[in-house]
């Protein structure tokens, strides 16, 4: 595939801890499995973690820093995933890079990656300051990750405002850590509440899933070993939708079965 068709996708949220890095790792593996040559770029120089979630932390020799200072070639810094060789990580450099890194530097790195990959996924730092703006400069489109909580949605809204003003598009939404039971009890913002408020198309819906934690313990993203858990299926489906496949979204209220779920649905009936 020619460099012109490479997709540069920023994965961002505003608020920290909502699941950006987890999504980047799982999406990277899923895309690679589907045959796309995929690079994941850790743009969170302050608090890098992408290497750890991918289980690649012990194989890092060079980082984006050495690539930029031309003390190594891009190929030397890229860490290829053993099980999924279509996936490579470009690790973040030393946190002190934040002092001199400019948006142009990130654009340069992204352009270099674009020569070799179909997808460049950029794991953005939290916040809306310099680090985020650097990461945004490398992207053409964006996935905004949020959870159904007021603070996360508010911060997502801020980020969407910045993405809009920079002309980054399309912007799509991944709603993470959805708890069907709480939603059924109307103790959590509904999916439509969040999509209405943020006015973004929904690219994926990821349930709260303990297996996410187990997978981070091991450094093996859920999408690596089949689709055994709800979150694994969700991440795989996000990848398929990105590739243009029409995969229906899950309905959180149908994720629960039994009499309690039926009552929960009944209670949600709109009367007037």
């Amino acid at each position: 595939m020619a460099a012109a068709s490479t997709r540069y996708i920023l994965i961002c949220s505003g608020k920290g801890g909502v699941g950006k890095t987890t999504l980047t790792a799982n999406l990277g593996i899923a895309l690679a499995k589907q045959g796309a040559r995929t690079a994941v770029l850790d743009a969170d120089f302050g608090l890098r973690n992408l290497d750890l979630l991918l289980g690649l932390e012990n194989r890092i020799v060079y980082t984006a820093q050495e690539v930029l200072s031309e003390s190594c070639r891009l190929e030397q810094a890229l860490v290829k995933h053993k099980q999924e060789p279509n996936l490579a990580l470009l690790p973040a450099g030393n946190p002190r890079m934040l002092e001199w890194l400019q948006p142009e530097d990130m654009q340069k790195i992204a352009a270099m990656l674009g020569e070799h990959f179909d997808y460049v996924l950029i794991d953005a730092p939290a916040g809306i300051e310099g680090g985020f703006k650097n990461a945004m400069a490398a992207a053409r489109e964006a996935i905004v990750v949020t959870t159904p909580e007021v603070s996360a949605v508010r911060d997502a809204d801020r980020v969407i405002g910045l993405l809009n003003s920079e002309g980054v598009k399309p912007i799509q939404l991944v709603l993470n850590r959805v708890r069907p039971k709480m939603m059924a009890n109307q103790e959590m913002l509904a999916v439509s509440d969040v999509t209405d408020i943020l006015a973004l198309p929904l690219l994926g819906l990821v349930l709260e899933d303990e297996q996410v934690i187990v997978s981070t313990n091991r450094g093996e993203p859920l999408t690596l070993n089949g689709n055994g858990s709800p979150a694994a299926r969700a991440y795989t489906n996000v990848a398929r939708r990105l590739q243009g496949e029409d995969v229906p979204l899950i309905d959180p209220s149908k994720e629960r079965q039994g009499i309690r779920a039926t009552i929960g649905r009944l209670m949600q009936t709109k009367l007037f």
Partner: peptide, 26 residues
């Protein structure tokens, strides 16, 4: 208004928090 809202109102309970969250966010 949903069935749950009506029942909550009848029982003098607080309305479900999702609605409050939505309004505050907007």
């Amino acid at each position: 208004m949903t069935l749950r809202d009506v029942i909550n109102k009848l029982l003098g309970r607080q309305p479900a928090s999702a609605n409050t969250a939505k309004e505050r966010l907007q």
